[in-house]
């Protein structure tokens, strides 16, 4: 087990970190580190300290350190968290167990493979597909505040994937499109400027889509940005049901 060679003054806190080094080992292990305790340190600071002072081989992702880039998500004592947004003092003096986000393959140490999530966003075309092409001379696409209100909450998503780690449906079967991708799909379908609603609806209403959701609701609880993916998915179910009813009662109308 690795331990700090540096002598630490004052209070310390213990971090137990999931390690997986595919070049040398086939099984993961846990390393324990003593880290200085500071009131104003977030968990990510402690992990950075370990990398700087004790073990430079520790791999993990981070970038902004201010809760906007969405890259520092890890399991902290079994809960998916942005490690730059939770403080050591939230756990002190208990030891902390740091693991890569659950339900994703682990590439190395705390780094997960997010190809699956990226693929899902691509499938759902989580961008605006313009209804009608416009030239720059024609000016901007306009939208009323009410049209913006329809989807604004969903734009807060930072693609941190914490919601996927909270979702047992995704954990059991990763073909489920999952909370964030479905929410972002909905975000663009609700946008008055977008023209790919029907294409997305086919996926959203498929077996991989909203109907796989059993409404555990944990995705919304762990979301650091109050996106409420669970809400978006339930609203998607309501919409799908209404559309189905409409097409049954008025087969001649727009589906």
């Amino acid at each position: 087990m690795a331990s700090s060679a540096t002598k630490i003054e004052g209070k310390t806190v213990t971090l137990e970190i999931f390690r997986y080094q595919p070049d040398d080992e086939t099984e993961p292990r846990y390393d324990t580190f003593e880290v200085p305790y500071r009131e104003d340190w977030v968990v990510l600071d402690a992990i950075n300290w370990i990398k700087d002072e004790v073990d430079g081989s520790l791999s993990y992702r981070w970038s902004c350190r201010m809760g906007v880039c969405g890259s520092c998500g890890m399991m902290v004592n079994g809960e998916p968290k942005l490690t730059c947004a939770v403080f050591l003092r939230d756990y002190y003096p208990k030891p902390m167990r740091i693991e890569p986000l659950e339900h994703f393959p682990v590439t190395r140490d705390l780094v997960i493979n997010m190809d699956d999530f990226m693929g899902k966003m691509e499938k759902l075309q989580t961008w605006i597909v313009p209804k009608e092409p416009r030239t720059i001379e024609e000016g901007e696409y306009r939208q009323t505040p009410r049209q913006l209100a329809d989807y604004k909450q969903y734009t807060m998503c930072i693609n941190c994937m914490l919601c996927y780690s909270a979702c047992p449906v995704y954990g059991l079967d990763s073909s489920f499109l999952g909370p964030a991708a479905l929410t972002l799909g909905r975000r663009y379908s609700l946008d008055s400027r977008d023209g790919a609603k029907d294409e997305r609806a086919e996926l959203i209403q498929s077996d991989e889509g909203v109907w796989s959701c059993t409404f555990v609701g944990e995705c919304s609880r762990v979301c650091p940005k109050n996106v409420d993916p669970a809400g978006a998915i339930q609203a998607g179910k309501v919409e799908g049901t209404v559309d189905m009813m409409k097409s049954m009662l008025m087969p001649w109308g727009r589906k």
């Binding site: 009410r146 409404f215 609701g217 409420d228 809400g231 339930q234 609203a235 179910k237 309501v238």
Partner: peptide, 13 residues
């Protein structure tokens, strides 16, 4: 859980 499925708007809010 009901409000998750039913989003009600009044005006722009």
């Amino acid at each position: 859980a009901a409000p998750k499925a039913i989003r009600v708007f009044r005006g722009d809010e």
